[in-house]
């Protein structure tokens, strides 16, 4: 059995659990709990360990998707999940600039622990307050286009959009393999 493990990370409310639910062919193994901190202002439930989804596309081939919690108090879960990942996507809600700093923290954390390929997926791009790709890239600290990972727009609610995001991530991984 050949398995590729992708991690879906990002700040609270970026759409990580929804992302996985949109493409998983199995009922997603989630660890949602009622949110009681400031997270509850954004949504009712929050992931406390991880979400797990799967896509089998051959008799001996499967894609595993792991979603991390968003709050930094669960950073030990970030650590556990990133260790075995082949690649990851950092989801960022483009209409909540407040969270850009959290996204940077998560990225710095991941970068310190893993060199695997990554891309950035901007969610909530249909909101009137959403920042565009170029400006979000700057706000996330990507000043040099050469060193910037692929940044895409993704709607976690749409299976097609999520599939496209995973294609981008997989293709980005393939390029990295060739180098």
């Amino acid at each position: 059995m050949e398995i590729m493990r992708l991690v879906v990370t990002g700040p609270v409310g970026a759409g990580k659990s929804t992302f996985i639910r949109s493409v998983s062919e199995i009922a997603v193994v989630d660890t949602d709990r009622q949110a009681t901190d400031e997270t509850s202002l954004i949504k009712q439930k929050t992931t406390v360990a991880f979400d797990f989804g799967r896509l089998a596309f051959g008799p001996e081939m499967a894609l595993h998707l792991y979603g991390t919690p968003g709050q930094s108090r669960f950073d030990f879960m970030w650590d556990i999940l990133i260790q075995k990942a082949h690649a990851y996507i950092l989801l960022v809600a483009a209409h909540r600039p407040r969270e850009f700093v959290d996204a940077r923290r998560i990225r710095a954390f991941m970068r310190q622990r893993s060199q695997v390929p990554m891309i950035i997926g901007l969610t909530h791009m249909d909101s009137p307050n959403a920042w565009d790709i170029e400006n979000t890239a700057i706000a996330l600290g990507y000043l040099n286009a050469d060193k910037c990972p692929p940044i895409i727009t993704v709607n976690p609610n749409e299976a097609a959009s999520v599939a496209q995001a995973i294609i981008t991530l997989v293709q980005h991984s393939m390029q990295n393999c060739l180098v």
């Binding site: 496209q164 294609i167 997989v170």
Partner: peptide
């Protein structure tokens, strides 16, 4: 594997 995956997606 990666090619198959992309094709599938």
């Amino acid at each position: 594997f990666l090619h198959n995956l992309v094709g599938f997606l």
